[in-house]
Design a protein around this nucleic acid. Sequence first.
DNA 1: TTGTTATTTGCAACTTTGTTGCAAAAGGCG
DNA 2: CGCCTTTTGCAACAAAGTTGCAAATAACAA
Lengths: 147, 147
Amino acid sequence: MTADNINMLLKTFNLRLTECRKDVIGVFMEQHHAVSQPDLELLLNHYDRVTLYRTLTTFLNKGIIHKVLDDTGLTKYALCSGHCTEHHHADEHVHFKCVKCENTICIDTVSVPAITLPDGFTYLDASLLVRGICKICQTKYNHSPAI
Amino acid sequence: MTADNINMLLKTFNLRLTECRKDVIGVFMEQHHAVSQPDLELLLNHYDRVTLYRTLTTFLNKGIIHKVLDDTGLTKYALCSGHCTEHHHADEHVHFKCVKCENTICIDTVSVPAITLPDGFTYLDASLLVRGICKICQTKYNHSPAI
DNA sequence: TTGTTATTTGCAACTTTGTTGCAAAAGGCG
DNA sequence: CGCCTTTTGCAACAAAGTTGCAAATAACAA
């Protein structure tokens, strides 16, 4: 059952089981694309904006979610795959933004290639955003060729 | 002379030679890191905020500048290297954000590696942000080891 | 040089995104 | 249940970005 998973997850990270946190985790689990604070605000409109921001910040610090850079500059978040710790995000996977549906998803199967920086630069981490057309939109487009 | 270069550039893109545009291009040429609208506002404080936003939008549409994704979510911009057209940005180089000085620079010598997406996904373009410590900060840090 | 016209700028007002302080509410635990 | 700490909601604010419109100005031609 999903509710149990959510409670487990919060317990693991030493977080109190509040309605808001459970609902936010729920949204991340249901949604298969990255979610922004404004997205959350629409989906969970009975919570205060500030509470949602703080919930996101808490989850981010604990390593439950990670930031997903978007070409709009809007900060989005997605669940970490499990290898992240409180201090370091270990999953450097590719993020994909569909230019049709505008959803951004994590592509866990494709990792960020190693980058060789010029001399004098130290590498810490990387974030790769690929833009294109996602599987779902591709299919839709192919099935209705006429405009 | 730089002023001539700027005028040339604007002429090339069929843009009117206004003070604001010339100044904004000037900032991009002097500054060696990506610039945000708030940055411009500080440097060119005699222009209206709105004018600066519109100038950036114009340059972006023409392909004179390109967006630089930043981990803060703040939209930054940098001059295109010359291969960009009005409809497609051809320079897919790496962007580097220094966690010390917080500047983001274009690393033209390192290009974004080819990414193989899962079946059903179409690739359009990519944006790679590497975080770390830049050459300048690295040097500073090494020369003053004691805290 | 001056007049005409389309473009650009500045102003005002507004929307959205994100932050901070504080008192009330709620979770965890004996 | 009752205590204590954490979390929430509210209010107020700060910063980022947008839109409409009238005044200013660049381009160009007479």
